[in-house]
Design a protein around this nucleic acid. Structure first.
Lengths: 341, 341
DNA sequence: CTGAAAGCGCTTACAG
DNA sequence: CTGAAAGCGCTTACAG
C-alpha cells in the first residue's frame, strides 16, 4: 500500500505538505493541494493509523472490559459505547472476562501494551493486583468504572441506581400484598450486587417486614445459579421473588417449571433488565428497566471528555431505572379479580 | 512509560538484546538475560505494540463486521470469534453496520487504515463499491465471509446450512399436518435470506403443497418487520408460519397477541435461532438451532489459518443446524390429543 | 553472542 | 507557504 513518501513523490512535494493536506492541519496553496489530492486518489493512499498513533502518542482506541457479551444484558451497553466512541473518533476494543480476575488482568495488560487511550471497566470481583494498579496509575491512563464501582479504584463512574431499582421492585411486590418475598442475589463481591441487596432490605424494612437471610440466595448473573437458587428457595415457599438479573430469572423459571409452580399464581416475580422480547412471552415479566444503551454511550462520552480534560474532578453519574409492570408480579391478576368483585 | 531504550540503558545492553530477550527471538547469555529481565521488571516495561506492529507490518488485529450486536443472534457469534482470536494471539475489533452499506464502507476503510491483518465480514445487502473492492484486493487483505456469502467476494466462508435448516423446519410443520404454511422471510438481498426461502419452497414442493407468494412476507431480521409482516400475514389465515429469525418471531408474537390468536392452537410457529431462555417462557418456541459460538470461532480460526498460509485454495465451511422441538409447533399438543384418543 | 544502524510510516517544530 | 530532518518505539539484517 502506498505510503506518504510515495504520495509526496507523485505530487512532487514534501511529506510535510502531504500530511498538512491530508489532515487539514496547515494552510497549503490551492495548486499544491490539488496536486496532493490527485496523488492521494491516484495511489489510493490510506494513511497508516498505526504510524500516526505512534507519532502522536495517541491510539484513538478505547478498551472495554465486560463479563460476557453473550449475557443479554451487555450487548446494548456495548452498542451504546461503540456508537458514542465512533462518534467521537475512537475505536472500541472489547474483551470478555467471565468475571475471572486473571483474564481481566491479562486483558488490561494487553490494553496497556496496545496503548489504548482509555478504559471502560466493568470490574470483576475483587481488587486489582498491586502491580496492575501501579501500571494503571503510572501510565495515567483514564479509566471509567462501568456499573461496578470500587472505592479503591479512582476515577469517573457511570452507575445504575441499583439500590433504588431493587427498592422499587420489592416495594411494588409489598404493595401487591406479598409478605414472604425472596431474592436471588447478584454477585456480592461487586457493587451492583450489594446495592440491590440493600434496596431489597430497605424495602422490607420500610414495610415492617422481617429480613430472612434464608430467603436470599446467592447468584452470579448466570442461568445456572438462578436455577439452583430457585430449587432451594422454592422449598421455602416464598410468595414472591425479586431476581437480580434476566439470566437468573430464566434459570429460576426452569426451577418453577420443574416443581410445577405457576407464575404469578403461586409465586410472583420481579426481575432486573428489560428486553424487547419480554412482551411476547408468558409469563410477561415485570422488570426494573435499566437504560443500557444510554449507560454505555454515557460511559464512553465521559471517558472521551476525560481524555480532553485530565484536570477536572472525577464524576459519578447514576442513571435512573424505571419499573415496567407486566404480568409476572401478579398485578394483572389482582386487577382482574378486583374487576370481578 | 519506559521504552526499550530505557531498558537497554538500565541493563547496559543494546536494544537488540532487550528485544531478543523480551521476544525470545535469539539466544542471549544467561547473565545478560538476567540483567535485562531485572531492568524490565524494575521499570515496569511493557513493549509498545503499536511500534511493534509498525515495525513488523502486522497489527495482530482482526476486524469484524456484524449488522448489530444488540440483535441476540450476534453476541454468541462474536464471543466465539473473540475467544478464538485471542487464543491465536489476535485482538478483535468490532463494528456494527445496521446493514447499512455506507456504514459498512466506512468501517472497512477504518479497518484498512488501522492495518488489521484480516476481516470477518457479515456482509450488508448489496455489493461492495468498486473502490472498496479494489482497496481490499490491492491490500491483499484476507477476508472471511460470515454467513452471508457472495460470489463477487472471493475468499473463505463459514456458512450456516440455511436451506437445509428451513427445509427441516417446514418439513416438520408439514409432518404435523399443517397445509397452509406462511413465512416471514429474512433479508432477501443476502444469501441467508434467499437460502432459507429456498428451503421453505423445497419443503412445500416435496410435500406436494402449492407455493403461495402471498403467504411469504418480507422481513429484515428486526422486531418491527416481524410485527407488521405478522399483521398482514395473519389476515390470510395460515395454520403455521416459519419465521427466519428470533427478533422477527418476537414481533410476530406481538401481532398474534394483538389479534388474540393463540400459538400453537390457532397458528403454529417454527423459528430460526435458539436461545438459552426459550425453555422458560410460553409458548416454548420450536426452533432451528444454529451453532452460533462455533460459527464465530470457526470463522476466526479460518482467518488465522489463512494469514499463516496465503497460498491455499479458499475454503467454504457449512455448519449444521438442528431442530429443537418444543411447544410452538403444536407437537406436544398433538401428542396429548393422541394420548387421549 | 552482541551492538550500531536502518527502516516501518507517520507528525511536527524549525528554518527559510 | 514549504521542506529537511528528527522523533515516536519497535525489529532485524549485518558486522564483528
Amino acid at each position: 500500500m502506498a505510503n506518504i513518501y510515495a504520495v509526496a513523490k507523485e505530487a512532487k512535494v514534501s511529506v510535510a505538505t502531504v500530511s498538512a493536506v491530508v489532515n487539514g492541519t496547515a494552510y497549503v496553496s490551492p495548486q499544491l493541494k490539488a496536486r496532493v489530492e490527485a496523488a492521494v486518489h491516484k495511489l489510493g493512499y490510506q494513511p497508516n493509523l498505526l504510524a500516526r498513533s505512534l507519532a502522536k502518542q495517541r491510539s484513538h482506541m478505547l478498551g472495554m472490559i465486560v463479563p460476557d457479551i453473550a449475557n443479554p444484558f451487555w450487548p446494548e451497553v456495548v452498542r451504546g459505547a461503540e456508537d458514542a466512541a465512533h462518534a467521537a473518533g475512537y475505536t472500541l476494543v472489547l474483551s470478555n472476562t467471565d468475571d475471572d480476575p486473571r483474564k481481566e488482568e491479562l486483558y488490561l495488560r494487553l490494553f496497556l501494551a496496545k496503548r489504548v487511550d482509555g478504559i471502560l471497566l466493568a470490574k470483576s470481583p475483587g481488587r486489582l493486583s498491586r502491580e496492575m494498579a501501579a501500571l494503571l496509575g503510572v501510565g495515567r491512563i483514564p479509566l471509567v468504572k462501568l456499573f461496578r464501582a470500587r472505592n479503591d479504584l479512582p476515577g469517573d463512574a457511570v452507575l445504575l441506581d441499583d439500590r433504588q431499582a431493587a427498592f422499587e421492585a420489592v416495594s411494588h411486590l409489598v404493595r401487591l400484598g406479598y409478605r414472604r418475598i425472596g431474592m436471588i442475589m447478584g454477585v456480592k463481591e461487586v457493587s451492583t450486587g450489594r446495592r440491590r441487596l440493600k434496596g431489597y432490605r430497605d424495602a422490607l424494612e420500610q414495610a415492617g417486614l422481617p429480613f430472612r437471610p434464608e430467603l436470599c440466595r446467592p447468584g452470579d448473573y448466570r442461568v445456572q445459579s438462578g436455577y439452583s437458587g430457585g430449587l432451594d428457595l422454592l422449598k421455602l415457599k416464598p410468595d414472591a421473588v425479586f431476581i437480580s438479573n434476566y439470566l437468573m430469572a430464566v434459570g429460576f423459571m426452569q426451577a418453577m417449571r420443574q416443581y410445577q409452580i405457576r407464575c404469578p399464581q403461586d409465586v410472583a416475580i420481579v426481575t432486573c433488565d428489560d428486553h424487547p422480547w419480554l412482551d411476547s412471552f408468558a409469563p410477561r415479566l415485570t422488570t426494573v428497566n435499566f437504560p443500557k444503551y444510554t449507560a454505555g454511550a454515557e460511559a464512553a462520552r465521559v471517558l472521551v471528555e476525560r481524555l480532553a480534560n485530565r484536570g477536572r474532578a472525577a464524576r459519578t453519574i447514576e442513571l435512573r431505572s424505571s419499573l415496567t409492570i407486566r404480568d409476572s408480579c401478579g398485578y394483572a391478576l389482582q386487577q382482574a379479580a378486583a374487576q370481578r368483585a
